[in-house]
């Protein structure tokens, strides 16, 4: 029983960070109908921003975290303006967007490797939080795991509030349903697209810092984000609740696989899950369905 709860807590912790990344995929997909594979690169930049803010500039952790998130939000906007906006202006087919996103992802990874003062070396975050776990009854909860969960939960709560209760949030929902009709409401859809990239980028930065602290920082850290993409597909691309539920479930499934079977099967299970979802229920748990009646 103790082991079960222990695994569950680890799964929730890792799953909540997946959720932070997955909402970035889902937000962009919901408006623009393509999977922004450059998102992994943005998360990787977030890990580096956080690392340098902490080590080079010696900023306190909360400042470094928010700073990294703001930096990646700006990075995501720059990516949108330089890579995707020209395609949108030309009304390019969606395949072009995916190819462009993959190219951008490779570019981001390699620019880090090519920069002389960064390069391909692995870096370890300074130890900000003690490694001694907190004891709750017979359970031992890692301080970092707890922090990951709390920060992610706060971020997701803020996002839900923003989307459901603010005017811009409603406009995002409207634009995701029909971009032409939202323009007819006077919504500046170009601004909505920027907002969505900024939001995705902001959470990517936070996720990058948390992952960098949990593991290490290296140029290919974005590969981990494939998992959050799987989670977004599992939950239903384009759906925010779907992305969160898919991520938490994936996190739990992964930790249970490592805990009860073998950690070698962890990634295997994740990809089998992706294929199973695509075969059995391509729109995922809560994906966009055809709600339109008229």
């Amino acid at each position: 029983m103790t082991q079960f709860l222990q695994q569950l807590i680890n799964g929730l912790s890792i799953g909540s960070v997946y959720a932070l990344m997955a909402v970035g995929y889902s937000l962009v997909y919901s408006i623009m109908n393509f999977s922004n594979f450059a998102h992994g690169g943005v998360i990787m930049f977030g890990a580096y921003f956080g690392f340098f803010y902490l080590t080079l500039f010696r900023l306190p952790f909360p400042v470094a975290l928010i700073g990294a998130a703001l930096s990646t939000a700006i990075l995501a906007i720059i990516i949108e303006r330089t890579a995707y906006k020209p395609l949108r202006n030309r009304r390019a087919p969606f395949l072009y967007f995916i190819i462009c996103a993959m190219g951008m992802s490779i570019f981001l990874e390699n620019i880090i490797i090519a920069l002389p003062f960064i390069g391909p070396t692995f870096r370890t975050y300074p130890e900000i939080f003690s490694k001694t776990p907190i004891k709750i009854g017979s359970l031992a909860v890692g301080r970092l795991d707890l922090l990951m969960f709390i920060i992610s939960a706060i971020c997701l709560g803020l996002l839900v509030y923003f989307i459901d209760f603010t005017k811009i949030g409603k406009a995002i929902q409207a634009t995701s349903y029909n971009i032409k009709a939202s323009a007819l409401m006077g919504i500046n859809t170009d601004f909505i697209i920027i907002t969505v990239f900024a939001l995705g980028g902001f959470f990517a930065g936070i996720a990058g810092v948390l992952f960098g602290m949990k593991y290490t920082v290296y140029p290919q850290i974005g590969v981990i984000t494939n998992k959050s993409f799987i989670a977004a597909v599992f939950g239903g691309l384009g759906s925010l609740p779907g992305a969160v539920i898919g991520s938490v479930l994936l996190g739990i499934i992964e930790t249970f696989t490592s805990g009860y079977i073998s950690s070698q099967y962890r990634d295997l299970i994740a990809f089998v899950l992706l294929i199973a979802v695509l075969v059995i229920r391509p729109r995922g748990l809560m994906g966009k369905s055809n709600e339109d009646k008229a």
Binding site: K170, A171, Q173, N178, M185, I187, E291
Partner: peptide, 21 residues
């Protein structure tokens, strides 16, 4: 517009308020 294009994912009132965006 033709085909009405209401925001099916939002409530009637939210649709109306978006009109006043």
């Amino acid at each position: 517009p033709e085909g009405r294009l209401v925001f099916a994912n939002l409530t009637v009132e939210d649709n109306l308020l978006l009109g006043a965006y």
